[in-house]
Amino acid sequence: MAAAAAAALPPLYRRAQAAQPVWLSWPADTPWKTLAVRLALRLGYTAAEGLQVRAVRPGAAVAPGSGPRVHAGGIDFVLRQNLDGEAERAFWGLARTPQLGFALRHASNGADAGVAARLRDGRIGVAAHDPMAAYVASLVLLAHGVRPRPGQLVLWTDADEAQTALVQGDVDAVCVGDPLLTRWQQAGAIRVLSDTRYAAESQRLLGGPVVCACLSASARDIAEHGPTLRALVRAVQRAGRWLQTASAMDLVPYADLADLAGDPGMFVTVVTHTRESWMVDGSLDERSFHHVLRVLRTLSDSERYEALTPERLVATRWSASG
């Protein structure tokens, strides 16, 4: 009798009754790539899908039988897990660009040398927590006919360190994401050479379409928890659609998700600049991962990534529609 009554309920309420647990992790220092995921939680979309989402540290193990562990973040997490022998698979895309800008520091004396000369001789500041920053910086150098040299990159651990280095002239160029990128643009402190928040520029620099952030899980969890992961995807996709059309007034209450509760105007500005970077249809194909691996093999230790193939990185047989 109870089963028959449950079957008569609308789908939304049937899913709510299930209360399927999901263990979800995301890195704290990349809020823009995972914004749709955290909006899905805040807007109640995951709860509407009958999911009980619990936070867990990235890479942490969960008890067998307690629900799937899902990571939301940069593609570097999937790469690292596979290099360490873990069968981590991307199953839904979140961002199709690195969401980084490469810019020259405006010279205080107004006497800028040529771009190539400044790139060849200068030091470039990049965020230590984002491996993609070093790759984008190297690609910009190569695009200007400059081969990256050892010791050229200066790694920053936080925004304050980056701000100090820029103001004091310790770096000649930067490769950063938001909100620093937008803040420095508005202040006239930098001249942007490449802005990969925009899909066309990202594809031009990287040589094709890529996936830069995704939802991923172990191959076993993907095989065993398909309905639960599809419910999560529905919630994230719904949040992604909301994000594409939300007005400034709609966005302001969620500025804290990017640590910008005290500057909601900056949050709205960044979302506006970044919208086309987010994937609403996050269906994945192997072609995007071919491009990612090609870039890594060009700029890094090629032997390290030689064993990785798109088939090992993406859940090719998984479908969001079941």
Results as ranks from 00 to 15, higher is better:
M1A: 15
A4P: 01
A7Y: 09
A7F: 07
A19M: 14
P27M: 04
A28F: 08
A36T: 15
R42M: 08
L43H: 01
Y45E: 15
A47W: 00
A47F: 00
E49N: 06
G50L: 05
G67S: 02
H71I: 03
F77E: 06
Q81C: 06
A87Y: 14
A87D: 15
A87I: 10
R89E: 06
A95T: 15
T97P: 03
F102C: 08
V115L: 14
A116M: 05
G125K: 02
A133K: 06
V140Y: 00
P150D: 11
L155C: 12
D170P: 08
V176M: 12
L180N: 12
V192G: 06
L193G: 01
L193E: 00
T196S: 07
T196D: 03
R197C: 10
Y198C: 06
C212I: 03
C214G: 03
L215M: 07
A217N: 12
A219G: 14
E224C: 08
P227N: 07
T228F: 05
A231R: 15
G240Q: 00
G240K: 04
L243H: 00
L260P: 05
F267A: 02
V268C: 12
V268K: 11
V268Y: 05
T269A: 14
H273S: 13
L284R: 10
E286I: 11
F289I: 04
V295S: 03
T298D: 14
S302V: 10
R304F: 03
E306N: 11
L308N: 03
L313E: 05
